[in-house]
Amino acid sequence: MSTESYYVPHQSRWPILASIALFLMAMGAGGFINNLSAQDGAGFSGIILLVGAGLLAVILIGWFRNVINESRAGMYSDQMDASYRWGMSWFIFSEIMFFAAFFGALFYVRTLAVPWLGGEGDKGVTNMLWQGFEAQWPLMTTPDMEAFPGPKAVIDPWHIPLLNTVLLLSSSVTVTLAHRALKQNNRDWIVIWLAATVLLGVVFIYYQAEEYVLAYQELGLTLNAGIYGATFFILTGFHGLHVTLGTFMLLVIWFRVMRGHFSPKQHFAFEAVSWYWHFVDVVWVGLFLFVYIL
């Protein structure tokens, strides 16, 4: 292990700017959401939110450009590469824990809270407060149907979700094929396989949106539809956001491939994005199993 050539960048103005951007976004979003809830109209805060988000986008582009340039100038040693690898791995671990919180919530309500409300198990006396309520999953009739009108129906796992599973699983294959092509330095195939992956991602998002429209317009499955709707949307919603982000990252990588940025030996950015993509994929398998099927 040698640190001789470890690259320590000189000053950078991106971090402080990015902090300001985050601050604007948080302030803006806070005000915006509060106004929405108070039905005060969006007001000024919506603009702050947008400015913050725009600023963050610009900063990230600039920041990444810096990193890409440094990397292409050959300033990064293998050891630097390893730092990035550790960084990305632990970042993905943190994402796993983020989803774990929501999966935990799902398991808790399914196996404990809803049965208790329905009169089963250790806290079954609770049913006194909700007479007539019966535990079931998916929860179609909530304890208080006025406040939280339960869904009329839930998503059939064997239509859109199955299709989406196939889409995402095959995208994991295509991204692996692209990686193999990259290692063989076969530029044409990298471009093709990557494009296929992006496309699969986009189609996935399209169907996911379709499913949401269906849920809202026909099934009465909404955020407000009780705990089933709540867990359904928080899990699939955050997953969908991750797919969107992942697709965007793949797109960037695709452009970089076109520009000839990667060599068979040095292509950490590519790998990081593909790890991320596999992670999103694995989460989906969990969702398909525990949210849709079981």
Partner: peptide, 13 residues
């Protein structure tokens, strides 16, 4: 946003 994670009325806790 109207969810009921922590509200028994919607099946949460």
């Amino acid at each position: 946003f109207g969810t009921s994670f922590f509200n028994a009325a919607g099946g949460g806790d």
